[in-house]
Amino acid sequence: MIKGVNLWKVFKSGIIGKKRIYALKGVSLEIKDGETLALVGESGSGKSTLGRILLMLIKPDRGKVVFDGVDLTSLGNKELRKYRLKMQLIPQHPDEALDPRWRIYDSIAEPLRIHKLVESKEEEQNKVFELAELVGLKEEHLSRYPHEISGGELQRAVIARALALNPKFIVCDEPTSMLDVSTQASIIRLLLDLQRRFKMTYLFITHNLELASVIADRIAIMNGGRIVKKLKPEELQSQLMKVAIFRSSD
């Protein structure tokens, strides 16, 4: 489905690019159709950079991103746009992801307008309502502004916006790290349910080992810009079960 081959990324800062941060040092990975790959690591290990590169939101310095057999790194911006439809991002801070001066309705409708997927206002409205229902938002939420709804509801709106284009591949960048545990549970349930219904592929970025071990098909651990370990969720689970709090009481 999507493949990253020997990806490198260096961030330069300072006046003449003196300061260099090696975010990725030759990362290769492959995510298969319909699979969830969890990318785990400390903050600063390069997880988010990798996610953004796979979406071609930033360009790698070296290496290739191959999506459905097409090398995205060789395409120009115009050609890339065709593929952008199929790849979406769910960011960490839902409160910063939406324009604070737009109603939720417009934020969800924007991708439909940009890619000219709807012909009339009515069609747009039907589609947005359909999306809202899919993620469990009520009509009253749509006419509000981002600061007027809770974090969990905001994240649902962001998910609805990502789904608007029927993507095949979604990068979930710590979608629940700012949410409470019970809200986290409902958002994760929603994401897993949507994945099954629309046969989507997820790259799930998180620092929560517990969460990764429950939702992923495979887990990759990153450290210092490299993937240092790949393991099965069961292996991680049996490790975590040693911590008493994670065991259920019965």
Binding site: S150, G152, V181, S182, T183, Q184, A185, S186, I188, R189, N208, E210, L211, S213, V214, I215, Q237, L240, M241, A244, I245, F246, R247, S248, S249
Partner: peptide, 28 residues
């Protein structure tokens, strides 16, 4: 942590990923 009594406390612990990832229904 062994045995929470109040239904809300139970709900909180049950929403932990390895304890079932069960959300509490409804909103605050």
């Amino acid at each position: 942590f062994k045995e929470p009594l109040h239904p809300y406390s139970r709900g909180l612990l049950d929403s932990l990923p390895l304890r079932g990832l069960k959300p509490i229904k409804g909103f605050q």
